[in-house]
């Protein structure tokens, strides 16, 4: 593999893993606080799946540069994380959490469907594996968007407020990394603009069917994944606290 391709691919795996890891943590914050027991369990499952996917992506990175996934997850500073800002925003209310998960699930399903054809076999294999699990997420969150959008005045208002806030942030999912173009040229990763077309097709239809309006003013759209909101720092402080306190985890 050419050095510039390898470098770009390491960066891509890091971004993919960080998206999953950070979202997983935000979802996991609901454990024990879900609106009903079934939903508590469902979201904990989704969080666990996303954590598993982060492990897969960091495992692929490890094959390229020998890095240790645990070290990257639990001992890396916030300035080195490459997740999209959408995923680090505080969990908000149930509508906020479900909408974010839905918008991300559609993006992930569309990206993975295309990535199954990657010319880099380990990535194609991982995409096929992860996609099977993602379908359950999308089925679940899609139903929640509909339920809250078409539910009561209150649930619709909350869902609409979440959409107004998140719509601009979601656009960052389709901003390529600095050298991602090299990977696209080699057919290693899908072209994000094609993924976005698919994403828009699905989300705009479903949101409208759920009586939600796409915001006219798209709002803040983050660009580079090298900067973050102030929320990432505190998220990591909590997520990494145990590992940093006792790296060997030998004391109970």
């Amino acid at each position: 593999m050419k050095p510039e391709v390898k470098k770009a691919l390491i960066a891509k795996f890091t971004a993919l893993a960080d998206d999953e890891l950070v979202l997983s943590h935000r979802d996991a914050e609901w454990t024990g606080h879900g609106p009903i027991l079934e939903e508590d369990i469902a979201l904990a499952n989704i969080a666990q799946d996303e954590l598993g996917h982060a492990t897969v992506w960091l495992g692929l990175r490890k094959e390229l540069d020998g890095s240790d996934p645990d070290q990257l997850a639990f001992f890396r500073d916030s300035t080195k994380f490459r997740n999209a800002e959408l995923l680090e925003l505080p969990r908000g209310d149930w509508a906020f959490t479900m909408l974010r998960q839905y918008l991300f699930d559609v993006y992930e399903a569309a990206w993975l469907s295309a990535a199954k054809a990657s010319s880099y076999q380990p990535l194609a294999d991982a995409a096929a594996k992860i996609l099977r699990e993602e379908r359950f997420h999308l089925q679940h969150t899609q139903a929640w968007v509909e339920r809250l959008g078409l539910g009561t005045e209150e649930s619709n208002r909350r869902m609409q407020a979440a959409l107004n806030m998140q719509w601009g942030y979601t656009q960052q999912l389709f901003v390529p990394l600095q050298d991602e173009e090299i990977l696209v040229r080699e057919n290693i990763v899908p072209d994000l603009s094609a993924v976005k077309t698919k994403w828009l097709e699905h989300t705009t239809r479903h949101l409208r069917d759920s009586r939600l309006e796409l915001p006219l003013n798209i709002g803040y759209q983050p660009g580079s994944r090298e900067t973050h909101t102030e929320h990432l720092w505190s998220l990591l402080a909590e997520m990494q606290s145990v590992a940093r306190w006792d790296a060997e985890a030998k004391v109970w």
């Binding site: 369990i41 799946d49 359950f136």
Partner: peptide
């Protein structure tokens, strides 16, 4: 189906 997600990742309720 009561829940697509169950006590473990591979099961539903």
């Amino acid at each position: 189906v009561k829940n697509t997600f169950g006590p473990t990742l591979c099961k539903s309720i």
